[in-house]
Structures are given as C-alpha cells and as structure tokens.
C-alpha cells in the first residue's frame, strides 16, 4: 500500500517535471510545476516529514507558484501568439560546433543522471539499513527551531524581510523612466 502510494507520487512528480521540460506554453509549464510540487509534498509525507509536506504546499503552491503565475502573465505580450514558444534552446557556447545546443544540453543533463544513478546503485549506505519509525515531527521541529537552530531561524527571518522589501522596490515603477 505504502509502496503503491510512493510509486504514484514519484510518477506524478517525474511525469509532470518532464511535462515542464517538454511543453511549449509557459502557462502550462507553471501548472505542471504545481503538480510536481504536490507530488514532492506527497513524497515528503512518505518519508515521515509531515510538517515539511504542509510547509511545501503552503510556501511553494501558495506563495512561489502564485508569484510565478503573476510573472508569466505580466511578461506575456498580448497579440503575438508565437512568443510563448519557449522551445528553442539557449545558446550554449560549444567550441568547434559539436552538434547543436539541444544535443549538448541533453548530454549534460543525461550524463548527470547516469552518473548519479550509477553512484547510488553502487553505494551501500549503512544508515539506510536501520529501521525507521513513523511519528509526527511537528514537536521536534518546533523544539529544534527554538533551541538548536534559533540563530539561523532569526537570520532567515531577516533575509526574508529584506528580500521581500527589495523585490517590492525592484518591481516598482520608479526604476523605469
């Protein structure tokens, strides 16, 4: 049952991430990103991180994705139907023109995946053979935030405030003449 749920969420995550890669429409990419983030939240639950799953849904789906959709809508030209075509790849400087940049980018990312996969298939982590229990992590997260991680907690609060004030200033109309 748990295995089935895991494979379901993993398939949801990977298929919609591939759809982000393959779709031509920026708006569709944003909605497939929503599905990917929901699948990652499900994986967090299956890895016994319930607080983090709820935080993932609230921060990413509720915050970041709304920002992304605002960005997509504000940067789309009205009237021209071709500018949502995002399929032409970035120009990657390739010396002596070995293939075009599609091939280069796919080689790089496929090579990273093959390298990581062989590394994980060969590695034997002693940690991963221990039994795990399932218990709610909310109490532990709260205790850790108030004791061991109090300094990073405050710093990240200041960082978030500074980033939001800076983003509001950057996006305002004052910078454009």
């Amino acid at each position: 049952m748990i295995q089935l749920a895991f494979y379901g969420f993993a398939a949801l995550t990977l298929v919609s991430a591939l759809a982000v890669l393959l779709t031509r429409n920026v708006m569709y990419a944003a909605f497939f990103l929503l599905l990917t983030l929901l699948g990652v939240a499900g994986l967090f639950v299956l890895a016994s991180a319930d607080f983090l799953a709820v935080a993932q849904i609230m921060i990413y789906v509720g915050g970041v994705l709304v920002l992304v959709i605002f960005g997509v809508m504000l940067t789309s030209k009205a009237g021209s139907g071709t500018n949502t075509d995002s399929q032409r790849p970035n120009q990657i400087p390739s010396p002596n023109r070995i293939g075009n940049s599609w091939v280069m980018a796919l080689l790089v990312s496929g090579g990273v995946f093959v390298a990581l996969y062989t590394l994980l298939a060969r590695a034997s982590f002693a940690l991963l053979n221990q039994p795990v229990g399932w218990e709610s992590t909310i109490r532990t997260v709260g205790r850790q935030l108030m004791t061991e991680y109090i300094v990073p907690f405050e710093i990240v609060g200041i960082l978030l405030l500074a980033a939001l004030v800076g983003a509001t200033f950057l996006a305002s109309n004052r910078l454009t003449r």
């Binding site: 991430a17 982000v20 890669l21 790849p89 970035n90 990312s109």
Partner: peptide, 17 residues
C-alpha cells in the same frame, strides 16, 4: 528530478521557465 531541472535550465529560453 535534479536532472530534469538541469535540462529545463539548459534548454528553455524563457526566463521564468
């Protein structure tokens, strides 16, 4: 997922993607 994200960063040309 990391490899797919890397491919998205390398292939797409819209800044938001």
């Amino acid at each position: 997922l990391f490899s797919i994200g890397l491919a998205v960063v390398l292939l797409k040309r819209h800044a938001i993607v």
